[in-house]
Design a protein around this nucleic acid. Structure first.
Lengths: 135, 135
DNA sequence: TGAACTGTATTAGCCACATAATACGGTTAT
DNA sequence: ATAACCGTATTATGTGGCTAATACAGTTCA
């Protein structure tokens, strides 16, 4: 049974995305194995103190990513094939970031500059989300 | 006088950010010269069919970026210096990579992962160019 | 001075999004 | 069959960002 034991009580971003992130991390780390039973929406909602629909939103997203399967009325189970799942996700992101990489290189930016820029913007985006501000 | 002639009638994101982007691009491209008079909030609002305050929001941001100056009651002018041009270019690039940052964070990726991904894609893109396979 | 501009501040409406409340329908074990 | 679970759909509420409506205040020039 997949456990929400170590779920961070407080974190950044919407709850449903934190749930998605948590399960993704479990899959990536191997804590979640293939065929593992997922706790029900209601159980998770009680554990985290949120509405079942919030969990449903996260589970639905995870299902669309191929990380779990649900059948109406029955239990839900994790689907873990680390290579394919990770590769698929990385490929999607790689396509997007790849365009930017080319654009930045064409504009004459150095790799170190791009890395620094990404680092800075990442923290910036994090802080912006924390405070709900733009700048 | 800075012109909004070629302003794209439709585009992505909030109007005020599209205005900011438009002026940034003009500064970066050299279409806007130093001391160039900016059309008033009301004139631009009439041209684009939006509220003057929407233009004000854009102008305020541009001023904070050092791309223009405003004095209460008087006309506004563009500021085009080596520094402001660099700032405009940097902002345009930052916005591009910023979209990726948000996308990556929203998908639950960790910062270290994103950094590693950028690094890998950068080298990849570099090698592709060496082989003459660019775009 | 005063008219016609200019930039700026305050307030409210609207809409998208995250979350909750509630209800409905399917599966499973007894 | 039926109780106790399960997933799912619909609707409502609260919040934040974008835009608009309106009013206020400064500059310029005849």
């Amino acid at each position: 049974m997949v456990s929400f034991a170590g779920f961070p009580p407080e974190g950044e971003g919407p709850i449903y995305l934190r749930i998605v992130r948590f399960i993704r991390a479990g899959v990536a780390a191997g804590t979640v194995v293939d065929g593992d039973e997922m706790p029900s929406r209601r159980v998770v909602s009680a554990t985290l103190g949120v509405n079942p629909n919030t969990v449903q939103k996260a589970y639905k997203m995870l299902e669309e990513e191929g990380l779990m399967v649900s059948r109406s009325g029955a239990k839900s189970f994790a689907v873990v094939t680390p290579e394919s799942v990770d590769a698929a996700r990385a490929r999607l992101q790689a396509e997007e970031i790849g365009r930017v990489v080319s654009a930045l290189r064409r504009s004459g930016m150095e790799k170190s500059e791009a890395m620094a820029l990404l680092s800075r913007l990442w923290d910036q985006d994090e802080q912006a989300e924390e405070r709900g501000e733009s700048e």
